[in-house]
Nucleic acid binder design. Structure first.
Length: 587
RNA sequence: GCUACUGUGGCUUAGUGGUAAAGCACUUCAUUGGUAAUGAAGAGAUCGGGGGUCCGAUUCCCCUCAGUAGCUCCA
């Protein structure tokens, strides 16, 4: 997928196209006032105040038409430098531009003219609107001014622009294909999960085939963790409000929690995170420095009250299962343990062939006293410690302010799903805060009580979200070890008793080796059953007829391929077992 | 939550101011087929829910629920 911000020419073209769109909108809606029109990774947008009017679907073609007309006229685009005072005068009756100009430095202000339209802009732009022919307005929506829900909703229109019609066409094609890769569509088609109004929004349910994938992920990551010395626990997904008051969630995270329930005079909440439970497990007994690091892991059910507008299949639900763990460490062990977590993340990504990700060091916003635990010294210590470790391991990352957890900074590994915004897959958080709140201690070598440091980490993030991502990356063609049905056996004829017996024998033998196998001997033609198996994305299709039965062989066909291969039963079993064990993508 | 759009049998969709159409799936019968759809018959929806306008609404209006896209990548 093209990133419009990574190509200078494309960026200039799209930025210019944003102006062209603004000009067209101004012609059709003379009352329009403009906020900002930047180039973003997916193209460009412009935020516009239309007073009481809103952009409707049917307005989009009209705006496009006006843009086409303007582009055809081919007005030259001129750059002008103006003083701050001049700029203020020019845009005096445009409060949005005034808001922008106020923050600009005198002597560095430029405006661009094209025909009857002038906009405040740093540029650069293409020399003429004539070059802006191959564009498309792709979507529109409301967007709060400055992203604050208390502000007015502006009308945002998104578009893309390319040098040639062919490139535009190819891009639009790609957008269409991305919709086909959407895990919600794949999940429905493959019968992996479902949602139902009566169950509740944001509460997906895994169907038998989807749960197979889910369980494989669970077994996979638990095995990895066991090897690294993690101990797994099981804790309830409800806790008292008092627990969350102690942890600070009640003060800093209440907005994202389901409201409390009163039972016999006590208040309980569905838990949004598992840290408090794991803290209490640590506090269950005295610890020596010799116990550390102590790694407590859990595939834990959590509930978060996500805004209805942000729900998205199994990628973001109100219930999900975190691949969570809390590592209780001494300060000296921080580096070693963070490094080990980072290694695990990339080890796992290698198994799933995940290569397109971005690391972010998420820091607090020191101005935001509501969202974050208020202790400057603690934050400085934690942020510097995490930054130092990341630098010493040598991973590349960008820093983002205001993205930290309320209790500490974190390393997030983000990926881009088929549709929509970047999501966080893995996370490793450094916490000096909660251990103190829970008064956790260990006895150090010198006999003194000390407070451990906690690393919160999730490798697969939530199993649900991870599954969503893998489905989109593979378009539902899961690697053999994850496929809900790994082998489908198709006897050529279904009323031949001997042949059926042979098919069942082979299926049973594979099943004994823990291969997930199904026999399809319905009274349908082979072509029909073959087609269905292909659409189900079953990796191996075994066709058995007289020839195979007499020779004790099987003929297989790999999903999505035409050619067939005949091998002995033993050879096939070995092949499948090897590919499952090695987590191979069948090709 | 906010803005816009959408909501028709299990799924994908057509359609209309006079109570609804098709394909797939499902059931039954026939067909026993060598690698992406065998044929026929049958059953299945009060058109998301509630209210209103109208002689009459799935179709128009209002409310509500749900789904989809987007909601700080500064001129």
């Amino acid at each position: 997928m093209v990133n419009f911000k990574e190509d200078e020419n494309l960026e200039m073209l799209n930025h210019s196209c944003a102006h062209l769109m603004a000009q067209a909108v101004k012609h059709l809606f003379p009352q329009a006032k403009f906020w900002v029109g930047p180039v973003v990774a997916e193209g460009f947008y412009y935020d516009i105040d239309l007073g009481d009017e809103v952009i409707r679907d049917e307005d989009i073609p009209k705006i496009e038409k006006e843009m086409k007309k303007l582009a055809k006229e081919g007005k030259k685009i001129y750059r002008r430098e103006v003083s701050k005072a001049e700029a203020m005068e020019m845009f005096a009756n445009d409060p949005y531009k005034v808001d922008l100009i106020e923050d600009l430095e005198d002597g560095h202000i430029t405006v661009y003219d094209q025909g009857d339209f002038t906009d405040l802009c740093r540029g650069p732009h293409v020399e003429s609107t004539k070059l802006l022919k191959n564009f498309k307005l792709v979507k529109h929506s409301g967007a709060y001014w400055k992203g604050d829900a208390n502000n007015k909703v502006l009308q945002r229109i998104y578009g893309v622009c390319f040098p040639t019609a062919e490139e535009l066409e190819a891009h639009l094609q790609e957008l269409e294909e991305a919709k086909e890769r959407d895990h919600r569509k794949i999940g429905k088609d493959m019968q992996l999960f479902m949602v139902d109004d009566l169950i509740g929004r944001g509460l997906p349910m895994f169907l038998p085939k989807g749960y197979v994938v889910w369980q494989e992920l669970e077994n996979y990551i638990k095995a990895k963790e066991r090897k690294l010395g993690y101990k797994h626990v099981m804790t309830p997904c409800v806790g008292t409000v008092g627990l969350y008051k102690t942890s600070g969630h009640w003060d800093h995270y209440k907005e994202n929690m389901f409201p409390a329930m009163e039972v016999e005079g006590e208040s309980f909440v569905l838990r949004p995170m598992n840290c408090p439970h794991h803290m209490m497990i640590y506090a269950n007994r005295m610890h020596s420095y010799k116990d550390l690091p102590l790694r407590i892991g859990e595939i834990a059910h959590d509930f978060r009250f996500e805004s209805s507008g942000t729900l998205k299949g199994i990628e973001r639900g109100r219930h999900f299962c975190q691949n969570d763990a809390h590592l209780f460490v001494t300060p000296e062990q921080i580096k070693q343990e963070v490094s080990s977590v980072v290694d695990l993340i990339f080890d796992v990504y290698k198994d799933f062939n995940i290569t397109d990700y971005r690391c972010v060091l998420s820091l607090r916003d020191p101005e935001d006293k509501v969202k974050y635990h208020d202790d400057d010294e603690m934050w400085n210590t934690a942020e510097n410690a995490l930054r130092e470790v990341l630098d010493s391991i040598g991973i590349e990352y960008t820093e983002e302010i205001g993205e930290a957890a309320f209790y500490g900074p974190k390393l997030d590994v983000n990926v881009k799903p088929a549709v929509g915004n970047e999501i966080t897959l893995s996370t490793c958080q450094l916490d000096f805060c909660l251990p103190a709140k829970f008064k956790l201690t260990y006895i150090d070598k010198d006999g003194e009580k000390k407070t451990p440091v906690v690393l919160h980490r999730a490798i697969l993030g939530s199993l649900d979200r991870f599954m969503a991502y893998i489905l989109e990356e593979t378009k539902g063609n899961l690697p053999l070890w994850l496929a809900p049905v790994q082998v489908k056996v198709l006897p050529v004829k279904n009323d031949d008793e001997e042949l059926n017996a042979y098919a069942n024998e082979i299926a049973d033998a594979l099943s004994d080796e823990d291969v997930r196998v199904e026999v399809d001997n319905r009274s349908e033609k082979l072509g029909y059953r073959m087609r269905e198996a292909q659409m189900e994305k079953v990796p191996y299709l075994l066709v058995l007829g007289k020839n195979e039965q007499e020779e004790g062989t099987v003929t297989y066909r790999i999903h999505g391929q035409r050619e067939t291969t005949t091998v002995t039963r033993a050879e096939f079993t070995e092949l499948v077992k090897r590919q499952i064990a090695n987590k191979e993508f069948v090709k």
